[in-house]
Design a protein around this nucleic acid. Structure first.
Lengths: 338, 338
DNA sequence: CTGTTAGCGCATTCAG
DNA sequence: CTGAATGCGCTAACAG
C-alpha cells in the first residue's frame, strides 16, 4: 500500500493525496472527504524512508553509549528520550559495550543512516574519534565529558568538584586516613577526575596521599569487595573511611565491610558519588554526591536539537553541579578533634 | 557527496561505483583501484535511506519498552543489542514511560519507519494493541509476557513458578506467616502472576491467605518501605517472612526493617524475585529467584530475526526458568518444626 | 566488463 | 484547485 494505491482508490492524483495527508494546500471539501475515507479505510501511512530521502532529514538522533546497564546511563537516556520525543525525534541506539571498534563502526552507521545528530556518551576519547567525527559533518553533543578536544558542545558533570567536596566532607568530620576505591583512567571523568578530586581534597587538608590506600578496579560489584578487603588487610593503621567513585562500588564495599566484622559507619565510614534511588533505601543508607542525570539527558537533548536547527548551542559546555546527600554510612570519627 | 560525485571524480559510471562498493560484480583491477582511491580520499559512504527504500528493508528493529531505568529491562536490552548487532540489525528505541498512548503512537512510527521487526516489552495488553498490531503486518515478538492473545511469538519468564517456588521455600524453612509486597495488575506478569504464585504456594501448604498480609504498591523503592511498615504495624501476630515481587522492593523492605529495629533475617526473612548483581553484594545479601535476562534478550532477538527471515519461530513461546539463590536475608524460623 | 536506465515512495515545482 | 513531471540516492536489469 503506497500513495499511488491510495490515489487510485480515491480517483485522484498522488499530489492530492499528499496535500490531504500533510495538509499542505487547499483541497476541495468533497475530494478531501473522499480521500480521508480511503485513508482511514486502508489505514495507509506514508513511508518515512521516501520522505526522509527527499527532505534529507530523518528526525533521528544516534545515541551511543558504552553500557546500558548502569543506572546513571539509564537515567540519562530517560531524560534524553523524554525530551527528544517531545520534539518529534527518535532514538537510534548504539550500545558499544566499551569497545572502541564498535564506537567507530557505529559512527559510520549513524552517518549512513543519516541521523540528524549524535549524542555521544564518551569515556576515552582519542585521535581516532577526532578524525572520525571531523569527517562526519553531523552535529555531535558529548555527554559526560568535556567536548573541547573534539570541538563539540558538551554536557558534563562536575566530577572533580564532587569528589573533592565529598572527601573534604569526610575530612571535616574527622577522617584523615581515607581509602580510595576507583576505576581505571579508561573512563576519563570517572577514572581520572574523581581520583584527582580525591587527591586534591587531601592536599587541601595537608594530608599526604598514600598510594597504599588507593585501589583501582573496574565498575562491577566484585571490584568493591576486592578493594575493601585490600584496604582492610593493609599492614599498619587501617582507614577510618572509604571513598568509592561509584554507587555500585560503595554498595559492595559497604556490604563486604559489614559481612567481615567492620560495622558501617561505626568502624568505617563509606561514601561515594552518584545517587540512584537505591542508596537512600538500603541499609545503611549511603552518603553520596547526587547528580541529576535525567536533567543532564534533557539538556543534552535540547542542545543537540538546537545544534541541528542551526543554532550553535550556547554555552557550548554545561557543567552540572552536585549536591551532597549525607546519610547513614558516614559518621564523625570517634574521638577526633573536629 | 553522493554516488554521482564519486562517479564523476573517478571518471566512471555510478553502476561501477556501486559494484566496487558492494563487491557485487567483477570490475577490472585498474578501475577498481582508481575508484577505491577516490572512495578513501572522499570518505564517501552510501546513503542507507536510498538503499533501504529500494530494498524495502531497513535492518532496524523497533524496541518498545515501558521504562528503561529498571535493571531487568536494561539487562534484557543488553542481550538484545548484542545479538542484533552481531546479525547486522540496529535498534530504534521507544521508551514509552508506561503510557498506552505512547505505545500506540510508537507502533505507528515503527511502521512508518519501516522497521523490519518489533520487540515489544508488554505489560498490559488490550484490545487496542490487538487491533493496532494486526494492521501492522510487521513481525512482532513479545518480551516478558504471553503472546497468545496477540497471536505473536514470545519470550517469557516463569513468573508464576518462580513466585510459587520461592514462597514454598520460605514455608519449607518454617515460615507460615508470610507477608506479600506486590505491584498492581497493570503489569500482568509481575503484578498478577507473581501474586498468584504466592497464593498458590500458600494453598500448596494449606495456609489460608490473609488479605491483611498483602500490600500492593508500585515499582519504586518507597513502596517497599510503605509495605514493610504496614505489615509490621498490623495488629496480631506479625509476619516472620516477607516476599517481595521485585528486587527493588526487597531492598527497601529490608532497609526499612533494619532501620526500624527488625533484624533481617533474625527477626524477619526477606526474599524476592529478580537478581541484579546488587543483591549478592549488599548487606544482608538477598535471597531471590534469578532469571537470565541477558539470555531472554538474546533469545528474543534471535526469534525476531528468524521471523523476519520468513521462518515462523519454533517453539512460538519460550518460557525461561528460574534458579533460586539462597543468601543471607532468609533463615529458618527459630523453633519451627521443619 | 562497463554504462544507461528504470524505479523504490514521496513532496514539490510548474502548468493548466 | 488539481494533475503531470521531476528527482532525492541508490541497486539491478539490461545493453553494448
Amino acid at each position: 500500500m503506497n500513495i499511488k494505491d491510495v490515489a487510485r482508490l480515491s480517483g485522484v492524483s498522488i499530489s492530492t493525496i499528499s496535500r490531504v495527508i500533510n495538509n499542505s494546500a487547499y483541497v476541495s471539501p468533497e475530494i478531501k472527504e473522499r480521500v480521508e475515507k480511503v485513508l482511514t479505510e486502508t489505514g495507509y501511512r506514508p513511508n518515512s524512508l521516501a520522505k526522509e530521502l527527499l527532505r534529507n532529514k530523518t528526525d533521528t538522533i544516534g545515541v551511543m553509549l558504552p553500557r546500558i546497564d548502569l543506572s546513571t546511563f539509564a537515567q540519562t537516556i530517560d531524560g534524553i528520550s523524554s525530551t527528544l520525543t517531545e520534539s518529534g525525534y527518535n532514538i537510534l541506539l548504539a550500545n558499544t559495550r566499551d569497545s572502541q571498534e564498535e564506537e567507530l563502526r557505529y559512527l559510520t552507521l549513524f552517518y549512513e543512516k543519516r541521523v540528524d545528530g549524535i549524542l555521544y556518551f564518551a569515556t576515552d576519547i582519542n585521535e581516532r574519534h577526532l578524525q572520525a567525527l571531523s569527517k562526519l559533518r553531523i552535529p555531535v553533543v558529548i555527554v559526560g565529558q568535556s567536548g573541547s578536544y573534539l570541538n563539540c558542545p558538551a554536557v558534563r558533570l562536575d566530577n572533580f568538584g564532587a569528589a573533592r567536596a565529598m572527601v573534604n566532607y569526610l575530612v571535616s568530620i574527622g577522617h584523615r586516613r581515607i581509602g580510595f576505591i576507583g576505576v581505571s583512567d579508561h573512563d576519563h571523568d570517572i577514572g581520572t577526575l574523581r581520583r584527582e578530586g580525591y587527591l586534591a581534597a587531601l592536599r587541601d587538608n595537608g594530608i599526604p596521599a598514600d598510594p597504599e590506600l588507593m585501589w583501582i578496579g573496574d565498575f562491577e560489584y566484585p571490584s568493591g569487595e576486592r578493594g575493601a578487603r585490600r584496604l582492610m588487610e593493609l599492614p599498619g593503621e587501617r582507614p577510618t573511611a572509604v571513598f568509592c567513585v561509584t554507587d555500585r562500588l560503595s554498595i559492595s564495599t559497604s556490604g563486604w565491610l559489614n559481612r567481615n566484622g567492620y560495622r558501617v559507619p561505626e568502624d568505617v565510614s563509606v561514601a561515594c558519588i552518584d545517587d540512584p534511588g537505591l542508596l537512600s533505601f538500603c541499609h545503611p543508607s549511603v552518603t553520596t554526591m547526587s547528580f541529576d542525570y535525567m536533567a543532564a539527558g534533557s539538556l543534552a537533548a535540547k542542545m543537540i536539537i538546537e545544534y541541528i536547527e542551526g543554532r550553535v548551542p550556547e554555552p557550548s559546555e554545561i557543567l552540572l553541579p552536585y549536591t551532597i546527600q549525607i546519610r547513614d554510612s558516614t559518621k564523625p570519627l570517634e574521638g577526633a578533634i573536629i
